[in-house]
C-alpha cells in the first residue's frame, strides 16, 4: 500500500477530531500528532476541523471582561469574519482562537432596535431556566439580522471527569419563529465512559412545537416566559422519555440478547455439557494423567 502524503494524513485525522467525545479534543489532538509526525503541517491543516468542531459542539468562551460565558456557534459567527463571534448578552463581539479556546479583542456590537426588546426578554427567561435545570450550563440568545420575529436559543452543559473516566455534554437549540408561530428545536446528548472500555451514549431529538396565540412580539416579557415554559416542558418530557427508553432497552433488548442465567436458574454443568461419547474419545486420545484430586 502506498504511503499517504502528510497533507492526506492531516485530512484523514481531521475526521477523528470531529468525532472527539466531550472534553477530549486535546487528547485526540495529542494522539493524531503522533500519527502525523509533523506539528507544523498538523497545526495549519487541522484548523478547519477544529473550527467546525467548536461551532458544532457549542464550545463555551469566556467573554473578555464580561464575567460570563457565551456560546461559539455558526449562529454567533459575525458575517464575513470567520473567527469573530457575537455575545448578545454583553453586546460585544470577540476573536476566538480555535486551538487555545481563548477569546480576545472585545468590540462593541450594537443590537438591532426592532428585535432587541424581545431578544433580551427571551435571554432573561432563558438564563432563569438555565440556572433552574443545568449545573454547568451556558446559554446564548440570538436575534436574526433584519428579522425582528425570529430568535435562536442555544444551551450547552458540559461535565468532564477524566479522573473517573467519564464526560458528558447536553446541547439544545430552539429557533423561535413568531411569524410562523412555531419553535423548531433539537436536543443532543453525548456521554462517554472509558474505564477499561469505551461506552458512549449518543442521542438525537428533533421537536417542533406550535406557539399558542398568546405569544406575540408586542408582549416580550409575558411571551418569552411562555416560550421558555414550552421549552422546559419539552426538555423535561424528553428527559423522562429517555428514562423510558433506558428502561425498555434494559428490560427488553439487554435481557433478550443474553440471559443472566439459563432457564434452569443454574450455571452450566460443564461435566455434562460434553457429550459422553466425545468425552470418552478425547480422554483416550489425549491420555490420562492419572487420578488427580478431581476437577469438579
Amino acid at each position: 500500500m502506498a504511503s499517504m502524503s502528510t497533507e492526506e494524513r492531516v485530512q484523514a485525522v481531521s475526521q477523528f477530531l470531529l468525532q472527539s467525545p466531550p472534553g477530549e479534543i486535546n487528547d485526540v489532538l495529542n494522539d493524531v500528532r503522533t500519527l502525523v509526525g509533523d506539528d507544523e503541517s498538523l497545526e495549519a491543516g487541522v484548523l478547519p476541523a477544529l473550527q467546525q468542531y467548536n461551532l458544532e459542539q457549542f464550545t463555551v468562551a469566556e467573554v473578555p471582561g464580561a464575567g460570563h460565558t457565551s456560546i461559539v456557534s455558526a449562529t454567533a459567527q459575525i458575517p464575513g469574519e470567520q473567527d469573530r463571534f457575537l455575545d448578545p448578552r454583553s453586546k460585544e463581539s470577540f476573536l476566538f482562537d480555535h486551538l487555545s479556546l481563548e477569546a480576545s479583542d472585545p468590540q462593541p456590537h450594537e443590537p438591532e432596535e426592532a428585535s432587541e426588546p424581545f431578544r433580551s426578554a427571551l435571554e432573561a427567561s432563558t438564563l432563569q431556566y438555565l440556572s433552574s435545570h443545568f449545573n454547568d450550563g451556558t446559554a446564548s440568545v440570538f436575534a436574526t439580522p433584519n428579522n425582528a420575529t425570529r430568535f435562536t436559543v442555544q444551551i450547552v452543559a458540559n461535565k468532564y471527569n477524566p479522573v473517573n473516566f467519564w464526560s458528558g455534554r447536553w446541547r439544545s437549540e430552539y429557533i423561535v419563529d413568531l411569524d410562523e408561530r412555531k419553535i423548531t428545536g433539537r436536543i443532543l446528548v453525548n456521554v462517554h465512559y472509558y474505564e477499561q472500555g469505551n461506552v458512549q451514549l449518543e442521542t438525537k431529538h428533533n421537536a417542533s412545537i406550535v406557539l399558542p396565540a398568546s405569544v406575540t412580539a408586542s408582549s416580550p416579557s409575558v411571551s418569552s416566559k411562555k416560550v421558555l415554559t414550552l421549552i422546559a416542558d419539552q426538555e423535561r418530557a424528553y428527559q423522562e422519555s429517555l428514562g423510558d427508553t433506558y428502561h425498555e432497552m434494559g428490560e427488553k433488548t439487554f435481557k433478550g440478547l443474553r440471559r443472566a442465567l439459563p432457564l434452569t436458574r443454574q450455571k452450566l454443568d460443564w461435566d455434562k455439557v460434553l457429550g459422553y461419547k466425545l468425552g470418552a474419545e478425547l480422554s483416550a486420545s489425549k491420555g490420562v494423567f492419572g487420578a488427580s484430586g478431581g476437577s469438579s
Binding site: Q196, G197, Q200, L201, E202, L282, V288, F289
Partner: peptide, 30 residues
C-alpha cells in the same frame, strides 16, 4: 392555550468493555 408538538429521535448506547483474569485449574485429560 392549545399547544401541539411532534418529535423524532434516536438513542444509541454502544461500546465495549475488556477484562482479564488468570487462574490455575486441575487437568485430567483433554
Amino acid at each position: 392555550d392549545s399547544t401541539a408538538w411532534k418529535h423524532d429521535g434516536e438513542v444509541s448506547l454502544s461500546g465495549s468493555m475488556t477484562r482479564q483474569t488468570e487462574q490455575d485449574h486441575p487437568v485430567q485429560d483433554g
